[in-house]
Amino acid sequence: MKKFKILIIIALTLGLLGGTYAWFFVYNKPHRDIENATADFTETAENLYNHYVNGLNAEDKNYDGAVIEFIGNPTAVESADSLKVVVFVFNQGMFGDEGIRCTLLPWHNDKTEDLSPDHPITIKGFCAGYNGTDIILEQCSIINH
């Protein structure tokens, strides 16, 4: 009987530990920390733009979903509500400017104040892909400027 009770207690403890683990590390697992992640690919802004615009071949690396770090000269900074988007323009098309658009993590917004097209910056973010006009990066951080 005593042995049975011990087995029940062990089973309940394991169940509780398993449930706690699943709750914290599976169901509520944190988002990938893009800011502190090592970049999967490092490029220049121009190469990154050309990589998508010239059309991907089967042998090309697919940057969709990857963390990309690149260096380039920012053309403009746009505001959308509380968000700041750093834009690198390489072309003109049906939607106006075309290039790379990087939405910053909110705590990097202040770093946009002294950005200039004359000074290259290094920026890192999650590449959501190419929408036909622009390459979209999310959760971006300005590494140096």
Binding site: L83, V85, F95, T103, F126, A128, G129, N131, G132, I136
Partner: peptide, 21 residues
Amino acid sequence: NQVNSALDIKSGDFVFKVLMK
């Protein structure tokens, strides 16, 4: 928050495009 959209106010054409990721 990165949705492309265009509206032609003469023809009424309206489009938007969005990346799922």
